[in-house]
């Protein structure tokens, strides 16, 4: 009854249960945080805008991205993945989301940032619908916890448009 094996088993079960409980509690504690992030994006220049040989419109642009995501960080946050996507509708597609830039924020100190960049990923349409197209730029973030549930949300910034002519 009180053998070594029995005690070791009881200790192991207790330790694992406790660890699972702590993990669950730290994940639940993330719900208490109500973040208030902010962001601002400015398109500085359309570097070029053309139709590729496959017939898809493609744009290169330079942007200023600034954001303050410090309020997303809690004690259970490992990192925040942040990306900027262009979102628009076309006659064929009810939704197009094209990621233009992304970054990994490792800590709260780095969560208030300002970056001047061209699009990191190709801004290519499925087809040729981008001339004069109005689009939204959406800043998405994905909170990766040390353990538990992942959170994601976004800020939609509207009122951007592409030129009518290729350049």
């Amino acid at each position: 009854m009180h053998s070594f094996g029995y005690r070791a088993n009881a200790l192991l079960t207790f330790a694992v249960t406790l660890l699972a409980l702590i993990c669950a509690m730290s994940s639940l504690s993330d719900n208490l945080n109500s973040p208030s992030p902010s962001s601002h994006v400015k398109v500085l220049n359309i570097n070029w805008f053309q139709k590729s040989t496959q017939g898809n419109d493609e744009v290169s642009m330079t942007m200023n991205i600034s954001a303050n995501l410090q309020s997303l960080f809690t004690w259970n946050t490992k990192q925040v993945f942040v990306f900027l996507a262009a979102e628009y509708e076309t006659p064929q597609n009810s939704l197009n989301q094209v990621s233009l830039w992304d970054g990994i924020i490792p800590s709260k100190e780095h969560a208030k940032f300002w970056i001047h960049t061209t699009n990191k990923y190709r801004f290519t349409d499925q087809g040729s619908n981008l001339q004069g197209k109005e689009f939204n730029l959406t800043l998405h973030w994905h909170v990766m916890p040390k353990t538990g549930k992942m959170f994601a949300d976004k800020i939609v910034m509207s009122g951007f448009s592409l030129p009518v002519e290729y350049r």
Partner: peptide, 22 residues
Amino acid sequence: HRVIKVHEHEDTGEVDVLTKGD
């Protein structure tokens, strides 16, 4: 991997998705 591009077709609702590892 993470989804970086989505194109959702109007008529069929079918999605075209592109992914990338962080």
